[in-house]
Design a protein around this nucleic acid. Sequence first.
RNA 1: GCCCGAAUGGCGGAAUAGGUAGACGCAAGAGACUUAAAAUCUCUCGCCCUAUGGGCGUGCCGGUUCGAUCCCGGCUUCGGGCACCA
Length: 859
Amino acid sequence: MDAQYSPFEVERSAQQYWEKNRCFKAVEDANREKFYCLSMFPYPSGKLHMGHVRNYTIGDVIARFQRMQGKNVLQPMGWDAFGMPAENAAIKHRVPPAKWTYDNIDYMRTQLKALGFAYDWDRELATCDVDYYRWEQWFFAKLVEKGLVYKKNSSVNWDPVDQTVLANEQVIDGRGWRSGAKVERREIPLWFLKITDYAEELLADLDQVAWPEQVKTMQRNWIGKSKGVELDFEVAEVAAEHSKLTVFTTRPDTLMGVTYLAVAADHPIARLASELDPKLLAFREECRAGGTSEADMATMEKKGLDTGYRARHPLTGRQVPIYVANFVLMEYGTGAVMAVPAHDQRDWEFATKYGLPIEPVVSDLDGNVPDLSEGAYTEHGQLINSGEFDEMLFDEAFDAIAKRLEKEGRGRVRINFRLRDWGVARQRYWGAPIPVKYGPEGQTVPLTDDELPVRLPTEVEIDATGSPLKRLRSFYELGDGWTRETDTFDTFMESSWYYARFCCADNMEAMLDERARYWLPVDIYIGGIEHAILHLLYARFFHKLMRDFGLVDCDEPFQRLLTQGMVVAETYYREEPNGAKSWFNPLEVEVTRDDKGRPVSAVLASDGQPVEMAGIEKMSKSKNNGVDPQSMIDRFGADTVRLFMMFAAPPEQSLEWSDAGVEGAHRFLKRLWKLAHEHLAQGEPGHIVASELTEAQRDLHRKTHETIKKCTDDIGRRTTFNTAIAAVMELTNAIAKFDDDSLQGLAVAREAIEACVLVLSPITPHVCHTLWQALGHEEAVIDARWPSVDEKALERDSITLVVQINGKLRAQLVLPADADRVTVECEALANENVQRHLEGKTIRKVIVVPGKLVNIVAS
RNA sequence: GCCCGAAUGGCGGAAUAGGUAGACGCAAGAGACUUAAAAUCUCUCGCCCUAUGGGCGUGCCGGUUCGAUCCCGGCUUCGGGCACCA
């Protein structure tokens, strides 16, 4: 064994060993307990960023830990390869999306390999491979047959200059990012998957999965199940087919307070009204301005205009005005809402703005009529001004009003979901073609198995103006007046089932096979919290579709979920003469500190001139604060990078990049290496005989087992790798202080060092691979079993407990571990400092928490 | 705007079931070794005071409790998501 730790040699030889022996190939084995560990696959954007390194290190630590627990582990990796950046790169650099994507994949694969992740590379897949997306097309056709797919009009962001549909992120302050033109909402027919058919199950099955409570809460709120009443307002002046205006409300108790209705700009009644009124027509046009996102809807100025039509209140018969409003959307619900300005804040603001009546129908529980001068009263209360329903509370009023509406045929109780069906069509090139054709008479026909797959052509001209597929005759035209669908799938489609395909990625005959039943569900899924709703909900839905098609047999795809925080770093800039800011990478900047270590100023290393410090932000290109993982691997080796990432913060929190912290991690590995080296130089150890250990030996022996116990829990249950590493650091500090070359001493030290190597091996696998060999083991450390805790070694003779007076710390006592309550109390009261603080006071109560503390309550 | 989180020394963080706030690491300071530097090792390190002791202290205001970083109510600031970024 070398005296010096040389990471590159160590890493090369460990990686060669793993590759040569195909250590991470996963083979189905019904007799072994399986463990499927999955990290969210990356979009191949060019090179790995620190967020990837963090994500994949977490996954790798868990996979390697589970392997040491004796599980049959599957840990695959692949590429979420369709998406917009490839098209943007094609426009900017004139590189075909396919070439750009595959080049990026090749580079990023070498980076992942350099980090030593224990992937079964035989299962690698890229979603842009036809062997992958063909099954998505096949499955889509099956879903069409089952009636789970339909086409309907939906709003998109339309750039009138580039004549193209924009993604929400391409709309900046209401304008197209390339053209700068004001974006309009435009209705186009799009393909939808009926996720709402599964709303109830998607909600209920959240109870089965071991996910963070916050993620489950977000999904529950997103699905948004609510009980309410659907009711009809009659509009007398218009033709029969529009004479009923249906609305949904969760507050039927406020029905008597309805003073107006609001409909979407594209609602039939609004259309009808605008035929006669140019002002209305103009307003309906105006409603088209702006983006389609919910945030836009919620924050825009609420505007409306009277249609002139009046609706008949279903209970009172009173006539209420119908307004067109820009915040009501035709696609959601019925495209119409009832307004109760006294008890809904948005309605209150609208009514106040347009001088509409605000009539309270709910008082507080003491019968006090609410003050509506500053805003709506939205609490549940007691009904007033509601005739026969007066004095009823919410539940009673809900039932009574619903019952009466039902009896009169004007309403019914309904369960409503906020969740909307999933629009899966995109007007983009770099995606999986939707397998549908259109006939000369307007027929819409899904492609049959023998017409599949539809290959995405790679020889295309890409520019900023929409999908090139329509311009490509060989793709678009099918002869005899038939044409092909040119929309492609939302890339969430691919990421909704890749976890299943990993189980049998080589099957060319079927989407999934029995191997998927062996491996699924994924035991732990690791990825960014930003995917808490959309990706995870779509994947859960898709899983249930596959289950109902007999392709998988569990209800949920991801049993446990670990959501990781962002990687952030300090930002530095200089203001240029023209006012623009130029940003400098943290690695190019030197920070000077005051004598307390506080940063006071920063200079650019290259010219020594000052730069401004602008705080800590998510690593990004725009702020140039991204630290390239590659440069860190080149400098310190993969183990150091992995160790730092796992040590700097628990996985759920954001992680701040720190150069000094990385150096600290590197120093620790050097110390560990030296410790092992020096220990080995002291000669062969004896065997531990527990009854013959000195006190110091017993202390180290105990610390070793305390560390094993803590690390097992920290890694296996809590996934707080930072505290596991801290515990190992404590143990190495104890080993370094332990100076005893007797046979028993060496044996205790050997046990401690081996524990460090085993426990760290999932985190820093390369250096532990080499150290394990150096410690004389034939088997590789990846095949070693996780160390077990000797409960006997944990026992202590004496314990320290603290004495508080009125909750304030006043003394510490060292007592035999088995001291009884009376002894503890007497010892506490006998303490000099305790007596001093009790002088002139009367003891009211003594609380003893066994093994922890004594609190004396005195006054 | 709506939904979900977070806030602890100079810094990253720890305190796992309401029981010693600050483990571990970084930075900083002092010292040892060295011709010197690097590396390494040892010690100090929340703030304040009349210092073998004491007061204050976990974003802010209030509550529950013998005891609150932890539970409850109300704020502030920052972050994630909001259905076509992935």
